[in-house]
């Protein structure tokens, strides 16, 4: 009866080899080799893609005007690092987009959480708001871009777009998470005389951390979508601006450079949240 489940606490790192059977060591070796093979294959796939992308336009299998190629992207990047003028400095553009995306992400998380809490607090409010939320969530928010531009101008509309795209799904996800909390856990703290605020603070919020992280993972991508779409419409700076500008003057290297930076940016933001998740999960199951 007093047995500890050792498996649950097994550490992922591979400890020293002493005192292990030959078969077990062979197993560990095989695991390592497989892990390494996966890495190598991924690297090879990336290299293959880049090489094909470089060769195909140069050999005129495809029109270089349409696809650009990696070396052109590198030199475009070099040029943009130094440049001013119409194209502007690449760090500036990246920074502008990053700030907009992070602000949009943070605001929609906070707003989404606040609304979800309000809906949890008052079932009446939830019942009243529910159909409107469903419509707002289903509406393609991109249709609002021109409206936001007219209402809010060229900077604020970008933030509004990021928030509009991310916030409704955040509300719905977090509120669903609240509702999935085991009612017996709530009953348990109620038997100790917990107030509604205590139920929220001690059970509902800490119990919904996994849901909140899942919402964050989705949100970070959505906020970036909102920012880029907003920039397409109106901005004077940012990667979305650079993409539209590059396509208008038919400079595909500019477009591809911006898209590549975007890919890196969204990956880094996602990985940051994944790292945050691991830090939290180390403490819980």
């Amino acid at each position: 009866m007093s047995v500890i489940d050792r498996d649950a606490t097994a550490e992922p790192a591979l400890p020293a080899d002493d005192g292990r059977s030959e078969a077990y060591r062979a197993f560990l070796r095989a695991v390592r080799v497989r892990r390494w093979m996966i890495w190598v294959s991924q690297a090879l796939l990336l290299v293959l893609f880049l090489v094909l992308w470089e060769i195909a336009p140069r050999a005129h299998w495809v029109n270089p005007m349409l696809t650009s190629y990696p070396s052109a992207i590198v030199s475009a990047f070099d040029r943009l690092v130094l440049s001013a003028g119409n194209e502007g400095n690449i760090f500036h553009h990246t920074w502008v987009t990053l700030v907009e995306a992070v602000v949009g992400f943070v605001v929609s998380m906070i707003l989404g959480l606040a609304v979800a809490v309000a809906l949890w607090w008052s079932t009446f409010l939830y019942k009243v708001i529910d159909p409107f939320l469903v419509v707002a969530n289903a509406l393609p928010k991109i249709a609002l871009v021109p409206i936001f531009y007219i209402w809010l101008g060229d900077t604020t509309s970008i933030y509004a777009m990021a928030i509009a795209i991310a916030v409704f799904i955040t509300i719905l996800m977090i509120f669903n998470g609240f509702q999935e909390i085991d009612p017996n856990k709530v009953k348990l703290v109620r038997t100790f005389g917990a107030t509604r605020a205590q139920i929220l603070a001690k059970v509902v919020l800490p119990g919904s951390v996994p849901t909140m992280i899942a919402a964050m993972k989705i949100n970070v991508g959505l906020a970036l979508v909102g920012v880029i779409v907003g920039e397409f419409q109106s901005s004077k700076a940012g990667l979305g601006y650079l993409i539209v500008y590059g396509s208008q003057i038919y400079k595909m290297d500019l477009v591809m450079t911006s898209v590549s930076i975007l890919a890196v940016m969204s990956t880094v933001m996602y990985l940051a949240i994944a790292a945050f998740e691991r830090r939290i999960q180390r403490r819980r199951q």
Binding site: D182, N184, K185, L188, F192, R284
Partner: peptide, 18 residues
């Protein structure tokens, strides 16, 4: 309402995993 004098034990432990 709930009082300190009463302690309640439920069907499962409902220990909070966090």
């Amino acid at each position: 309402g709930p009082m300190r004098a009463c302690g309640y034990m439920l069907q499962q432990d409902y220990l909070f995993e966090w």
